[in-house]
């Protein structure tokens, strides 16, 4: 199909433009544009050699200033995996995850370099936490792209940070190393679907930033309700049931209540200064 890439982008973004002709038939771009997270897997675990190779590919991704402040833990031991998945067991699908890897921010090595070289570490502030976190996120994204190119399905699990201290203990993470996200991975049992995103006029800017308008959000709410309606509403015990439940309503309900209030304290306990 000559316009395959554009069709995938239109499914994702209501205002997607026609892609340039030379990009339409690039299969790797089609795969990325049409991806979706997978939460339903065949039971067999991913072979360790495959996970090692995907991890190497992920760690080939860009790193801020070549500092390489991210590490990946492949969770091969069944008991280790079970202990980690227990931390996120309020999501039923995680009980059937074939393989698990955890992406960690690591500012510890940088501090080691300073000890080796006899130089002070003069950047012990928020940036140390931020750079390592972003590096871990870049590696996570690259791992997902690589895994999906290999025919595997993935779903990042950010909620492991809800119990970050316990996850850190299970993985044996020392000071200045902390979990950013876990990643469920396996052979998909159900083909992932495209989840629509906000219109590009709200999120893809040219030269200068444009504020997202209420009209843009309302249009997205309506589009998403038409193609991907919510079957469950969040916290109906507090907010009741709405006849017009939307993405913006769901996200506002989600963050109307505290989440991970103790995360900064956990990060500080790992030795980071966040000032």
């Amino acid at each position: 199909m000559s316009d395959r890439l554009s069709a995938l982008l239109v499914a994702r973004f209501s205002d997607a433009r026609q892609a340039p002709a030379e990009l339409e038939r690039v299969s790797s771009l089609q795969a990325i544009a049409g991806r979706g997270s997978c939460r339903s897997f065949e039971p067999d675990p991913v072979p360790l050699d495959t996970l090692r190779t995907l991890g190497a590919i992920a760690l080939a991704s860009p790193s801020k200033s070549d500092l390489q402040q991210r590490d990946i833990v492949i969770v091969d031991d069944a008991e280790q995996k079970s202990r980690l998945l227990d931390l996120v067991s309020d999501q039923a699908w995680t009980g059937q995850v074939p393989s698990l890897v955890v992406f960690c921010a690591n500012n510890r090595r940088q501090r080691h370099l300073h000890e080796m070289q006899g130089l002070d570490f003069a950047n012990d502030h928020l940036d140390a936490f931020f750079n390592a976190s972003v590096d871990a996120g870049i590696a996570l994204a690259s791992f997902v792209v690589a895994a999906e190119a290999a025919g595997l399905g993935c779903c990042p699990i950010s909620t492991i940070r809800n119990r970050a201290a316990e996850a850190s203990d299970i993985l044996g993470l020392p000071d200045h190393v902390f979990p950013v996200a876990a990643l469920a991975i396996g052979r998909p049992a159900v083909a992932p679907r495209i989840s629509p995103r906000l219109p590009l006029r709200a999120t893809l800017h040219l030269d200068r930033f444009n504020e997202t308008t209420t009209a843009d959000i309302a249009a997205y709410d309506a589009e998403r309700a038409a193609v991907q309606p919510y079957a469950n509403q969040r916290r109906t015990d507090l907010y009741g049931t709405s006849d017009r439940y939307t993405w913006s309503m769901d996200k506002a309900r989600q963050y109307s209540l505290p989440e991970r209030k103790g995360f900064a304290q956990f990060i500080r306990s790992k030795g980071f200064r966040l000032d």
Binding site: G36, S37, Q91, T159, T236
Partner: peptide, 15 residues
């Protein structure tokens, strides 16, 4: 059971 809606039921690509 508390009435919350997990990400897997809401179209989120990250749980």
């Amino acid at each position: 059971a508390d009435g919350d809606t997990p990400c897997c039921a809401t179209g989120a690509d990250v749980s």
